[in-house]
Write a protein that binds this DNA or RNA. Structure first.
Length: 868
DNA sequence: GCGGACTGCTTACCT
DNA sequence: ACAGGTAAGCAGTCCGCG
């Protein structure tokens, strides 16, 4: 028998070189009644056929097959009015898309009662909602009318995106996948204290997350478009300029570049790329046809911003050039470009997702451009060009365009196909297609998880307005003006250098709270009048929690938390396991982390479909309770608490026995897992919260919140700061600070001299700050980066929201100049000296060193005398 | 008319 | 379109000052 640990994921058929070539010109074949075992990767709705279709990826042939619904499933919504009443409502019963009424009996979790409602069945999704006028949901108060039809289809048919299906005799059948017996047995043992329902859920998740992921055959596509004005990006809607170059790079080794022949284009001196097939076209139309032919051979198309640009442009340009719609392998949704031949993943949307950025990639990239992301993740960026693309010679243009496709593909191949696996894992957790899950945010994923399990249990899904009405608002006051409720506690730091520090933290604090306290819209402020429920108060609030029923949120978030903490995370670090397994465990662990980290926040986000402020407030309040109880217990035990934030406590040289005691106490009294997250050889704390420098035993350094690591400060400061960090990382004992202090003095003095002598370039001195919105939309104040942006605009530069503005501080009325317009002589040296001081002070404060002492006040003044 | 105290705005960070 | 809490710097306002 195979144990899970030895279980080798059955690999999909390897992708041979040039395998897509066999498929050139192929499209998805007409629906057949037999489809081999394939992964369910995509779902769509066909308006003409009035039915859903599934796209199934065959891991053997690497082709996509389509299966059209033949079960007669129809869109619907619910009403609390009777059939008689609704029959009299012409907007419903006389609606051309209306099909029938039926009675639905389900559980109403919000009111804790079984309820009967009228199900209104329609012929097509738009009849329920989405038409400019005439949709049923606009005419009556409807339930479950805002759910995308394809999601309804998935939930109602218990479909599992990312899992295997086959079609036999026209019928769709799931290919059963069983969790290894050893794994199930272990789960049963580990969770023997939990309910059956809970254990079943855990096993369900593990079944979904243990099933192998195919190696997707895919190709990245990129185009370059002529632009008469180099600073302006061509309009993809109009598509009125020529596509001058296109490239496609496949995971099977295909590399093709398509160049448009132009009289004006210089032959140039740069060579054409040698490692690709470079093809010249006299007519743009033929170029597009060749590109499209290459694209349709791939079941998965990758782009970076294809929804908004590349594929959208091709779609419109193709039509402008007289191609029929069937000849263009792209279809446009409102904000999405679909590949008619398979699945289109727009990596821009995926990498732009905040949660993915922060929790899956640890904020390694800051800007969301192809160049930035690939630089940060792959260590290679876009190719620098000598001129705007429209002016490049063939060689440079082809090389540039090819490189873009290449790195786009590589963003999905690095680390053993990590991104494709991550998207697949998220797709399985959230019951959404690869396309949808890669485009939408974590709140959509969590909504989908919740909806799916409502349907599985035969619960009605509540409307946002009735949750609000029945559960009400919050009862605590936030520290920050304008926030809805009180959040986490930050413990006042004890300034100074502390040797031998242990950092304790709660494993997944908020998910644990949601699990242990049975939190959810159903249970917080439940309708029961029993003393038992009403007296089960959330500390620090007037909210109570139900004692009779288990909330879905609690069950779902709790089970996801447990499989991450107790199963996937430890295995992702288990060196005894084979590499390929570790990598998959890490993917799953990261996918779960992303979902879990947002699981509390969404209930406090007013746009979330199941927004319930008391749930969010209760979660935060219990979090505060846990940390403050632990803090109190630590002090009782005589452990010095140096600092803490939300779910962590920094302890000074804690006695191991006391530490164990504290951990045990937490488990038994709070039912919370407290663990030593890390140790510091020493920790430097100033009086500022969320601000510290910790050196680990191996010399690696944690820097949190310090100005020196903030992305907007000038490069010369970052460099000086990290020079200091390097010196500090080598300090092993209090005595060694003396030497360190001298070295740091040298760094600071060096900066002073170079500043005074204007030896830094404007680039080194540039601040770089993100535009949070368009320039005109700063109405209350005009921050410095906006002043700089306006100067740029005055010179004809385009500035958009989301861009970084690089500027220097100068003397004179404006105080700033964009780097493009600044000279070293403009620089306001004193301002920079102030920045140098404040950056270093945060660390020096902790070390008990006065900045003035370091440099010598008198000498500092003399610096200025010399400059005047 | 000017400067200091203050509040609010904005960005970037932490958990 | 996950939340709240904190730091820093600057913009803008108010108020006293005979």
């Amino acid at each position: 028998m195979q144990t899970l640990d030895q279980y080798v994921l059955p690999a999909s058929e390897p992708i041979p070189k040039g395998s897509a070539l066999d498929l050139v010109g192929s499209r998805i074949p007409a629906a057949t009644s037999e489809i081999p075992q394939s992964y369910f990767v995509s779902i769509g709705y066909d308006g003409e056929k009035r039915s859903c279709y599934l796209r199934l990826y065959d891991p053997k042939s690497h082709r996509i097959n389509e299966w059209y619904d033949n079960t007669g499933h129809r869109p619907y919504c619910f009403s609390d009015k009777s059939i008689e009443e609704l029959s009299g409502n012409e907007a419903v019963s006389k609606n051309p898309g209306f099909e029938k009424f039926q009675i639905a009996e389900k559980y109403d979790a919000l009111r804790s009662v079984s309820a009967t409602r009228t199900q209104i069945v329609a012929k097509d999704p738009l009849t329920i909602g989405g038409k400019p006028v005439g949709s049923i949901r606009d005419a009556i108060r409807a339930w479950e009318a805002d759910i995308k039809y394809v999601q309804n289809y998935i939930y109602d048919n218990n479909l599992e995106p990312g899992m295997m299906y086959e079609v036999k005799g026209g019928r769709l059948k799931q290919v059963e996948y069983f969790l290894a017996e050893e794994a199930s047995a272990r789960v049963e043992r580990l969770l023997h204290t939990e309910s059956d329902e809970y254990r079943r859920l855990v096993l369900e998740w593990m079944r979904l997350l243990d099933c192998p992921v195919p190696t997707y055959l895919r190709a990245a596509v990129d185009i370059e478009v002529y632009s008469p004005v180099p600073t302006r990006i061509p309009d993809a809607e109009l598509a009125d300029q020529e596509v001058i170059c296109a490239s496609i790079v496949g995971s099977d080794g295909l590399r093709r570049v398509f160049l448009l022949k132009k009289e004006a284009r210089k032959q140039g001196t740069r060579p054409l790329p040698r490692n690709a097939s470079v093809e010249f076209y006299d007519a743009e139309r033929e170029l597009l046809v060749a590109l499209f032919k290459a694209m349709v051979a791939y079941p998965v198309i990758l782009t970076f911003n294809g929804d908004d640009f590349d594929l959208k442009y091709l779609y419109h340009r193709g039509q402008n050039l007289g191609l029929a719609k069937e000849e263009i392998p792209v279809e446009m949704g409102r904000d999405v470009a679909y590949a008619t031949c398979g699945v289109h993943i727009d990596l821009y949307k995926f990498f732009f997702n905040r949660s993915i950025q922060v929790y899956a990639f640890g904020q390694r990239y800051r800007e969301n451009t192809l160049g930035e992301v690939s630089e940060a993740i792959l260590g290679k960026g876009k190719i620098e060009t000598s001129a705007p693309v429209s002016e490049l010679d063939y060689g440079e243009l082809a090389t540039y365009c090819l490189n873009d496709s290449e790195i786009t593909l590589e963003l999905t191949t690095f680390d053993d196909d990590l991104v494709m696996k991550l998207i697949t894992a998220l797709s399985r957790i959230s019951y959404m297609s690869l396309e949808d899950v890669s485009r939408q945010g974590v709140s959509s994923w969590i909504r989908s998880i919740m909806y799916c399990h409502h349907r599985k249990r035969n619960y009605f899904i509540p409307r946002a307005d009735e949750i609000q009405e029945l559960k009400g608002g919050t009862t605590t006051e936030a520290v920050i003006k304008g926030k809805k409720y009180k959040g986490a506690i930050v413990v006042e730091p004890r300034p100074g250098v502390h040797f031998n520090v242990a950092v304790l933290d709660f494993a997944s604090l908020y998910p644990s709270v949601i699990k242990n306290w049975n939190l959810g819209y159903e249970t917080v402020r439940c309708p029961h009048s029993d003393v038992e429920c009403r007296q089960n108060l959330v500390p620090g609030t007037s909210h109570w929690v139900c004692k009779k029923r288990r909330a879905l949120e609690s069950l779902l978030i709790g089970s996801l938390r447990d499989i991450r903490v107790d199963w996937y995370k430890p295995r992702s670090k288990d060196a005894a396991l084979p590499k390929s397994q570790i990598s998959w465990y890490r993917v799953v662990s990261d996918a779960l982390k992303v979902v879990l980290n947002a699981s509390y926040g969404v209930f406090g986000a007013d746009r979330f479909a199941l927004y319930c402020p008391p749930v969010a407030e209760a979660t935060a309040a219990i979090g505060r309770y846990a940390i403050s109880q632990t803090l109190g217990r630590a002090r009782e035990l005589g452990i010095e608490v140096l600092y803490g934030d939300t779910d962590s406590l920094f302890l000074e040289s804690p006695d191991p026995q006391k530490l164990r005691h504290l951990v045990d106490w937490s488990r038994s009294s709070l039912q919370m897992e407290l663990e030593v997250d890390k140790n510091y050889r020493y920790l430097a704390l100033s009086s500022r919260k969320k601000n510290y420098l910790g050196v680990k035993p191996d010399g690696s350094v944690d820097i949190k919140g310090l100005t020196g690591k903030k992305r907007h400060i000038p490069a010369f400061l970052t460099k000086a700061f990290y020079d200091m960090v390097r010196i500090l990382s080598e300090v092993k004992s209090p005595e060694e600070f003396e030497n360190a202090k001298e070295s740091i003095t040298e760094i600071v003095k060096g900066c002073y001299f170079k500043l005074r002598n204007r030896e830094y370039t404007v680039e080194e001195l540039a601040f770089s700050v993100m535009m949070g919105r368009e320039t005109e939309r700063y109405t209350k104040t005009t921050p410095q980066h906006v002043k700089a942006a306006k100067q740029l605009q005055g010179r004809g530069f385009e500035v958009k929201s989301g861009e970084l503005i690089a500027f220097v501080k100068v003397l004179g009325e404006q105080g700033v100049k964009p780097v493009q317009l600044a000279k070293v002589d403009d620089i306001d040296i004193q301002k920079y000296m102030e920045y140098l001081r404040s950056t270093f002070e945060q660390v020096l404060d902790a070390l008990g060193i006065e900045f003035e002492d370091l440099i010598g006040v008198k000498r500092l003044e003399s610096f200025f005398l010399n400059t005047e």
